[in-house]
């Protein structure tokens, strides 16, 4: 269910190859958000992408999440270029290989925790019963077995992020892509969330890419990629 093509199984999970992204805001007003970024993420790796606001890390997140296409360069999943994928293939990639965790949780307020976790399963063929079972199991795994019928408004920030993590892992993705996952949480809750993400990464062998501006969060990763003004300035293995 990870959407991997067996033919390119030996290719790295994710490669960024001289990626640039230019936003045209108006005539003669171009913003170079990324100016040639290259790196690789292997299966089961834990990578932190750090940088201050304006460094280009949000742009990079969108490109890694296959939500956007680079202006030049290549983003490849399992060796396949995102640029060559059509709308349906991109949707299948996001649904099958990537689990998003957002800073602002992005839960649908009118749905229960269970239905929020079911959401990505709706876009693949599975029976309603199977979906419920998998979503329930995912919620159990993040420690919310007793909250499945609650709506987001009835949950604390930490609990909401746990629901979002359950939603990200319910599809058994090859990559968890977390954008400032602790940004809206207090320090202790943030630490709990990071611990949970790292557990999942360890136990399931899921690659974990965390985008953050917090040094403590970045320090937990095995490898750190630092961005400044759209370029990689340092890349260090811990």
């Amino acid at each position: 269910m990870s959407g991997q093509d067996p033919a390119v199984d030996d290719a790295p999970l994710l490669t960024a190859d001289d990626v640039t992204r230019v936003y045209t805001l108006g005539r003669d007003n171009e913003v170079h958000a990324l100016r040639g970024v290259s790196f690789t993420v292997d299966r089961g790796e834990h990578v932190a992408i750090v940088g201050s606001s304006g460094s280009g890390k949000s742009t990079l997140l969108n490109l890694l999440g296959a939500l956007d296409r680079p202006t030049s360069g290549h983003v490849r999943y399992h060796g396949r270029d995102v640029r060559d994928m059509d709308d349906a293939e991109l949707a299948r990639l996001r649904n099958g290989s990537i689990g998003f965790v957002f800073q602002s949780f992005q839960l649908l307020p009118r749905l229960t925790a269970l239905d929020n976790v079911i959401l990505p399963l709706v876009y693949r063929s599975s029976s309603p019963r199977e979906r419920r079972e998998r979503a329930t199991a995912a919620l159990e795994q993040v420690g919310l077995a007793d909250r499945i019928t609650h709506r987001p408004g009835e949950l604390s920030g930490g609990q909401q992020q746990r629901v979002a993590i359950a939603r990200a892992l319910v599809t058994e993705p090859a990559l968890l892509l977390a954008d400032e996952p602790t940004g809206n949480l207090d320090t202790r809750t943030g630490e709990e969330i990071m611990t949970l993400l790292e557990e999942l990464h360890r136990d399931r062998g899921t690659a974990l890419v965390v985008i953050t501006h917090e040094a403590e969060v970045a320090a937990r990763a095995a490898r750190r990629i630092e961005l400044r003004d759209g370029r990689i300035v340092t890349e260090v293995a811990a």
Partner: peptide, 11 residues
């Protein structure tokens, strides 16, 4: 969000 989770344009 739905698109990020795997919805196609036509979905």
């Amino acid at each position: 969000l739905r698109k990020a989770l795997g919805a196609r344009t036509r979905d």
